[in-house]
Design a protein around this nucleic acid. Sequence first.
DNA 1: AGGCTAATGACAGCCACTGACAATCGACAA
DNA 2: TTGTCGATTGTCAGTGGCTGTCATTAGCCT
Lengths: 226, 226
Amino acid sequence: MKTAGTAGTAPRAVSRPGLRERKKRRTRDALLRSALELFTTQGYERTTVDEIAEAVDVSQRTFFRYFGGKEDAALAVQEMVEAHFVDSLRARPPGEPPLEALRRAVLEGWDTISDAVVTVVPVELYLRMFRVIESTPVLLAAHLRRSAETEERIARLLAEREGLDVDADPRPRLAVAVFGAVMRVTSRQWSTGEDAGPEAIRELTAAYLDQVGPALTGNWRTALRR
Amino acid sequence: MKTAGTAGTAPRAVSRPGLRERKKRRTRDALLRSALELFTTQGYERTTVDEIAEAVDVSQRTFFRYFGGKEDAALAVQEMVEAHFVDSLRARPPGEPPLEALRRAVLEGWDTISDAVVTVVPVELYLRMFRVIESTPVLLAAHLRRSAETEERIARLLAEREGLDVDADPRPRLAVAVFGAVMRVTSRQWSTGEDAGPEAIRELTAAYLDQVGPALTGNWRTALRR
DNA sequence: AGGCTAATGACAGCCACTGACAATCGACAA
DNA sequence: TTGTCGATTGTCAGTGGCTGTCATTAGCCT
């Protein structure tokens, strides 16, 4: 390495997290990327943790120090997405009616999600991973449970906004559950469809949210436009 | 074995399933009952399959011949309940509007479920197990996934009833998803509440179904009755 | 430079689950 | 009744996810 010492002691910004932290982040990112890559190419079940660890050249034990389990790695990106929505919702003005806040938060969330995700994994990998989740029973199960937890947090958040008690008034949980249900149907449809681009999901979300009313109508004999 | 041959060749009803079948059923029932008993007393995670098998005095391998896994045993009753609902829905007159059919099927389902369940496990055990499911992450996850599968079946069923294509028209899936969401909120509320009797869940279901409209209303400032 | 602490690797072990093979037990007919 | 056939079961061995423990290593700070 000769005299390149300056590189190691580079006098960068003071806020630099330090070598140890940077190394941890790199290891985690590498593990996550390798995991997703393997999951999406060979399938989730056919990928062992040892394989992932080996691809990054760390011990299996280390993998489990960064992720609670194989599932956690597979759902890490999805978790970021959901966190993004919650943040999006928190940013809504307090005066907004709850359901409008939800709708706007979600639509706005889809617009800005790409930028947030790309910093860790390429968008295309996220898309492929989503399909793996939908088609792998144990992953889908874990995903649904996490979504349910997120819904609970959102329900509490909305209840607080409106000054209600979640346990006394069923409306927050009901509304959020309904909303979540629509989101699930939407993303499922999106993931199985042709156009899996980032814009398609936004359109689909808006369209399906508008369809809730008609769907709850007594009869479905009236034809759909489009 | 002496001359006790008559006992083995007992000339009972012709429809008697035969010793082999009866033995299988007994083993399965015993395994299921022991499993639920252990799950509800010590907790799901702290119960090993070996323990369950030992309690029935069979090998661990045999347990896995009767159940796909620990989960399957834990969710066996829940599965019966969902199947009961689907049957209930199938029995609805074809002319009935889809959402009314759903509502009636569910309410009627709760009325008749007790009788159906008791034939295998005591109701009280079912109640306890439900709480275990709700409070055990991996079980809740598996439960939600199965519910999602049931919803898909129901969506197809309703679509067929109405002569629609589930993939072209989002309304069946949307309606069923919304309905399922209400059911989940309802049963969750029921399981955490005081009155966990069979009648309480029926009332709660009806009440929450009626609350969906108000919950989707723009603002929640209007107070609730009750 | 050297001590402190966090990160890692290397075992060892538990538990859910599966495949394979041999022993056993009920069904059915001779 | 007895003997054959096929289903049920137990045993054994092995895989993979996951955890506790402990020694080693490597960044950090004085």
